[in-house]
Computed example of a mutant assay.
Amino acid sequence: MNTTTAPPTTAPPMQPVPSRRGGFHSLRVAGLRRPTADTVAVTLEVPEALRAVFAHHPGQHVVVRHRRPGGELRRSYSLCPPPDEPGALRLVIKRGGPGGFGAYATSRLRTGDRLELSAPTGSFTLPELPPGGHHMLLAGGSGITPLAPMAAHALRRDPACRVSLIHSVPTSADALLADELAHLKDEFVDRLTVLHVLTREDRGSADGPLARRLDAAGLRHLLAALGARPGPDTAFALCGPPGLLHSARRALADWGADPALVRWELFTTPSAPRPRREPQPPASGPVPAVGETRVSALLDGRRRVAVVRPGDLSLLDALLRAHPDIPYACREGVCGSCRAKVLSGQVAADAQHALDAGDLAAGYTLVCRARPNTPEVTLDFDA
């Protein structure tokens, strides 16, 4: 478990995210396309009054709220505009399990329908490199959706940089956005390399790192083939399932990559809600003297106050009971939608996959995973 306390005033500032994080906006579905058999690309119409709200940088995501009988679903999706329309608002949605939003979107969503979206958020971006640097991007499955626009952005921003993109998928039919990446390759033929690692496709006598599950040895082989070298001019952005990212990050550390130049974002396939677990005691620190804790949270410039009861599993439970506009999506510590800074008090939290060591050192927590460790806690969602 992680324990987070209010940081010292000298803590390094985080990259800013859009100031408005609460609330949802209803947008019309302007177009649908099916990149693969189990995905749908949804283009949304943004009215002039909301253009500033939905301005975004490559790598950010939105939360979709889907109302249905029996309750609502929330899912986070990376913004993935086509390479030739960098300002378009498009989501690429995978079917997933039955009963989820992905199943609804891929089978029932139609042009003219409306979706409820949060404002873009997130700090998953390419590290800054000197001109002519090398951006190495590694995607697993639908983890390609934030990386494809990041690749296009880097190539257009720095006319001397190189981008190498490795996409691990089961078969060539699962290579999401392959056609768009091929067009981007035609535009930047000397500076963009795209490799597909096929983990389940029968390639006859083919062998090597492109015809097997991507492990540490295979990644090192590909890094050498792509001319990547550890140093201040080589940066990495990774997005995919936990197993792939864990293996890749460990391999990059052993290879000598600068940890400050390795950015990553996890995703998991939406599934049935996990069983509710019993509240767990904090890992360390003082125990509240009373059975209830007062939590105060700043969101979109307004103060929200809630009471955490003994049966609440997280700060999010208490905040949502009093304020339904509190941002969240996965409840698993993966998407980062409920990130907030601890200004005072102390919280204890289970694994917070969307936060790295720098986030934790700067005092951030994910309220879906955090429980109070002091009688009062103050949070800032706008930080």
Rank of each mutant, 00 (worst) to 15 (best):
E265I: 12
P324S: 15
L91D: 02
H183A: 08
P146V: 01
E116H: 08
P273Q: 13
S205K: 15
T365K: 00
S78C: 10
P83C: 02
L115D: 02
A148Y: 00
P58I: 07
R67Q: 10
P288K: 07
P324T: 12
G87R: 09
E187S: 06
L210W: 00
F24T: 12
L32A: 13
G132Q: 00
V342M: 09
D84E: 12
R68D: 02
L299D: 11
H153C: 07
P232A: 12
P16G: 15
E85W: 02
A248T: 15
A148V: 10
V62L: 08
L316P: 03
E187D: 06
T374F: 04
L129D: 01
T374Q: 05
W264S: 01
R28C: 11
L165I: 11
R51F: 03
D113F: 05
W264N: 03
P259D: 14
P209A: 13
L155F: 02
P372I: 01
L181R: 02
A248D: 09
A329N: 07
A55T: 09
G112Y: 09
G112F: 04
R303M: 07
H153L: 03
V46E: 00
S284K: 13
P170S: 11
A154D: 01
E265D: 08
L155W: 00
L176F: 12
R371Y: 01
A11V: 00
A306L: 07
S168Y: 08
C338P: 04
M150D: 00
A206Y: 07
V189H: 06
A306W: 03
Y364L: 11
T365R: 01
P259L: 14
D382L: 11
E201C: 12
P209G: 10
Y328K: 09
L50D: 05
R95M: 15
V29S: 08
T293W: 00
H134K: 05
V62H: 01
P81C: 06
G22E: 13
H353Q: 11
S172M: 11
G122M: 06
F124Q: 01
A253L: 14
V62S: 03
P120H: 08
K341E: 09
P372E: 10
